[in-house]
Amino acid sequence: MPFIAGSDANEIFYKDWGTGRPVVLAHGWPLNSDSWEAQQLFLADNGYRVIAHDRRGHGRSAQIWSGNDMDHYADDLAALIQALDLREVTLIGFSTGGGEVARYIGRHGTDRVAQAVLVSAVPPFMLKTDDNPGGVPIEVFDGLRQGSIADRSQLYRDLADGPFFGNNRPGANISQGMRDSFWHQGMQAGHKNAYDSIAAFSATDFRDDLARFDVPTLVIHGDDDQVVPFDVGGRASAALIKDAELKTYAGAPHGIADTHKQQLNEDLLAFLNTYKS
């Protein structure tokens, strides 16, 4: 299996499909690159080189003890882009991966970046604080930490069976396979890595990172997202990124890479095709 050395010599697994201008996919918590498989296959079939990696401590990447924070996630992404010598890249981040993309641009700039996409993403800042009064109360994230320590296997079941895919909404019919895949990917993540990542995605302030975006940017978010609420995530990010395009998926939950995969695939391809080198 292909690996590169991350920012502090940890092993980062990646999948590299197709040929053409490169697209790099950054996944959500507590998942891995397999969560992007529908988009990776579709975009590779449509003329792009599509690369998806497992974040440190997740999936097949090394379960390194330290550095489970956004700065290291972004530096690992930089190491991947440099190791593969990727240029004119479109960076696409889902949920926590959106934070990874934002922090990458904040720390490393856009010399190698042509476009950016944030999908159900955690920026600009999830946590409710005095200067972010519309954020999510810390008790929500403390509950995730408590659930992770008590029985993380059941925590992932509860997320998959409930808010992640919107399966707790009237009339929802999310397949058992889709929910099982979420649980399976979550259990592949290192316990400490996934635990530490809760703070990384919830308490990292990306507002300054978004101010550094200077490439065409698409923001996609469901307006019934129960994990990263639309007003906290997509709407707020689009307002902070110069000239960002916001696409709102009416009634859509957090996990739109699965529940709305055809719509997402087509929107991503259309955006990719707008780039002229």
Rank of each mutant, 00 (worst) to 15 (best):
V24W: 02
V24F: 02
D34H: 12
D34W: 08
D34F: 10
E37G: 00
E37D: 15
Q40S: 13
N46L: 05
Y48P: 04
Y48F: 14
V50P: 06
I51Y: 00
A52E: 06
R55Y: 04
R55W: 07
R55K: 08
G57P: 12
G57Y: 04
G57K: 01
A62S: 13
A62E: 15
I64N: 06
I64A: 13
W65Y: 10
G67C: 07
D69H: 05
M70D: 06
M70N: 06
M70V: 10
H72I: 15
H72Y: 06
H72P: 14
A74P: 12
A74K: 03
D76I: 09
L77K: 05
L77V: 11
A79N: 13
I81N: 01
Q82A: 14
A83Y: 09
L86M: 07
R87S: 08
R87T: 14
T90W: 06
F94Y: 13
S95W: 08
G97M: 03
G97Q: 01
G97L: 05
V101T: 03
R103P: 09
Y104Q: 11
R107C: 08
H108G: 00
R112F: 05
A114M: 09
S120L: 02
S120K: 01
V122K: 03
P123L: 01
F125W: 11
M126S: 01
M126P: 13
M126T: 07
K128S: 05
T129H: 07
D130P: 14
